[in-house]
Write a protein that binds this DNA or RNA. Structure first.
Lengths: 148, 148
DNA sequence: TACCAATAGTTAGTATGACAAATATATGAA
DNA sequence: TTCATATATTTGTCATACTAACTATTGGTA
């Protein structure tokens, strides 16, 4: 491939990712979900994997540790998540949703799936698979921890 | 399409966009380019469209005005860009690269095209066109200013 | 002329992202 | 046991993203 041809991909990728996040955030705001898109990602993963440590959760959601620390701070200020001392390791926390957090996840989950659907109008299932394949290939091409 | 099938696209999109930016930023750092990826985007557009206003430039690079204000502040602190009063409209600036800015763009441009190429290993030209089409469709699906 | 709405840009506040360094604790080797 | 090293989390700093509110200026209109 010639260089000029694909020089624009990073711009398109970045602007689309921002549009997707921004659209979702707007919908969250109109629906008074009272969490950000990134906070939702953390809540959702925590619902699926209770009792994980911050390090494990950071790997699940692909955020670095300082970022996750701050998101957990905000979620715990909102009363949705609690840090509990790990019984063996005093450096570590086990994170879990509060009752309020569980309720939040249950009520938002279906509404958020609907919001996410909007992006795929005029696109087919095979488009989705192509898209996933290309994104994952790019990711691996640039991943220095891929063992190659 | 079923909801569960594509529920993950926003996560994949976001993680890939961050990987692309992060990879480029690492290369910028090793190469001592002394600008960030976003600062580069602004510089490049300014080289192609001299004398634009901040509002025009913000539309070109799809950044909001406060973000662009700060990027221009940083670039002008580095001596790469200058704000010049618009001769007719005292609210507005005409932006232009300094001699140092011109030199920076000329020297970095080919090196950055090389860096961008890495993402497309194992992918074809037709993958690239598919990718572009899908990204643009998603963007337009979520764009509330698309006149529909 | 006087007023008012629109426009260009900045400032302030909150959240996220990357990176470096600090703190506390745990673990393994001498 | 003691020391070196590794791990879990936090703090600090800078850059970017978005929102809202603000200043200055412009342009149209009564």
């Amino acid at each position: 491939m010639t260089q000029e041809l694909f020089a624009s991909y990073s711009f398109l990728l970045d602007r689309t990712a921002r549009k997707v996040k921004h659209y979702a955030q707007q919908q969250f705001k109109f629906g008074k979900f009272d969490v950000t898109v990134d906070q939702w990602l953390v809540l959702k993963n925590l619902a699926e994997r209770p009792q994980v440590s911050q390090t494990e959760l950071a790997n699940l959601v692909l955020k670095d540790h300082p970022t996750l620390t701050r998101i957990i701070d905000l979620l715990s200020k909102k009363g949705l998540v609690q840090r509990v001392q790990h019984p063996q390791d005093r450096r570590s926390f086990q994170l879990h949703l509060t009752a309020k957090g569980e309720k939040k996840v249950a009520s938002l989950k279906p509404r958020i799936l609907e919001i996410r659907e909007k992006a795929w109008e005029n696109l087919t299932e095979s488009d989705f698979h192509e898209f996933k394949r290309i994104l994952n290939t790019i990711y691996q091409n640039l991943d220095t921890h891929n063992g190659i």
